[in-house]
Simulated assay, not measured.
Amino acid sequence: MATRPPLRVLFFDVFGTTVAQRTPVADELWRAAKEALESDKSAISDEVRSKATKMSYKQWFELGGEWDKDVDEFVSDSKAKYGSVDWRAIDKYRFESLHKQLAKLGLSIPREAGSTSELRIREGSLWDDSQLKFICHIWHRLPPWPDTCRGLELLNTKFSTVTLSNTYQDLMEHLVAHSSIPFQLFYTADMFQSYKPNPKVYLGAAEKMGVKPEECGLVAAHLNDLKGAKTCGFYAIYVERPLEEKNPELQEENIPDIEIKEGEGGFVALAERLGIQVS
């Protein structure tokens, strides 16, 4: 039986694995609502103000989850219709999606059909267009998990560390720079004109790094992503993160080659598991 070559490159999923999503998004919505409600300049209608004031943090957290779910469905529809994904369009859709979620709750008042205004949201809403766009930009400034930067510093001493995310290059560079996350290289799905878990992304990334797939590992908090990478010959490295696994049924397939469970230390624990001295 052939001996498997040692790991040389670690590719990383980013959203949910490297940076936190659910709580930071809820925090952003909660903060922005509080700021709008307390602003002397805000022109919120009495009805919207009453509804927003009664919103609990839990409800904002749930709204954030529905927002993310709707964007995921938009991505899936794009894949089904066109066989590809325009990640910049997805980024822009976040605005439409959040507006839609807020309108369902009576917190955002849309312009009437036929309106000549370029603005999408009427006065009286909790947020105006510019405020909503700033909130949507949270995806460019999500914070790393507490173990992310230290873990990557350790992993960089032995491996090449590279992002491999379903997004576009500019967003990834903004996100990584915002929190000074010490990746060595930034790869995104748009570079390979595809999307994970399409093999084109994993195999294209390995080829671009000049290594064999068997010399690569994917670090992710999503089993579906790891399953796609493992099918291409990658090591599957599962770093469990709170509320991130969207396909728990895949746990029965024993996909990971290495597994770091939630609360075990994330990327720092991974570095130790891979033979790096952690002081």
Rank of each mutant, 00 (worst) to 15 (best):
M1C: 04
A2R: 06
T3P: 02
T3S: 07
R4K: 10
P5A: 01
P6M: 05
P6G: 06
P6I: 03
P6F: 03
R8F: 03
V9G: 04
L10H: 02
F11Y: 04
T17M: 09
A20L: 03
T23L: 10
T23N: 07
V25E: 05
D27F: 07
L29S: 10
W30G: 03
R31A: 03
R31Y: 07
K34T: 15
A36V: 08
A36Q: 01
A36H: 02
E38V: 14
E38S: 15
K41W: 13
A43C: 15
S45F: 14
E47V: 01
A52M: 13
K54G: 08
K58H: 03
Q59R: 12
Q59A: 13
F61S: 14
E62W: 01
E62R: 05
E62M: 02
G65A: 12
E66G: 09
E66C: 09
V75L: 03
S76D: 15
S76N: 09
A80T: 15
D86E: 10
D86P: 09
D86T: 11
R88N: 13
I90Q: 09
Y93K: 01
L98D: 02
H99M: 10
H99C: 07
K100A: 11
Q101T: 01
Q101E: 12
K104S: 09
L105A: 12
P110V: 14
R111Q: 15
G114W: 11
G114Q: 12
E123D: 13
L126G: 10
D129W: 09
S130G: 02
Q131H: 03
F134R: 14
F134D: 14
R141L: 01
R141E: 08
P143I: 07
W145K: 04
P146A: 08
P146Y: 10
R150G: 15
E153M: 14
L154F: 09
L154W: 09
N156T: 11
N156K: 13
T157A: 13
K158Q: 07
K158Y: 07
T161R: 05
L164K: 05
Y168P: 06
D170I: 10
L171F: 03
M172Q: 15
A177S: 14
H178N: 11
S179W: 15
F183Q: 13
Y187G: 06
T188E: 08
T188I: 11
D190A: 13
P197R: 01
P199S: 00
L203H: 00
G204I: 00
A205F: 01
A206P: 07
E207V: 01
G210L: 05
V211S: 09
K212W: 05
K212F: 08
P213I: 10
P213T: 10
A221Y: 01
H222Y: 10
H222G: 04
H222A: 05
L223I: 06
K227G: 07
K227T: 11
A229F: 01
G233M: 11
F234H: 00
I237W: 00
Y238A: 04
V239P: 00
P242T: 11
L243R: 13
L243E: 13
L243P: 02
K246M: 09
N247V: 12
P248E: 13
I258H: 11
I260A: 08
E262F: 00
E262M: 05
G263T: 12
G263H: 08
G263A: 12
V268T: 13
L270H: 00
I276M: 09
S279H: 08
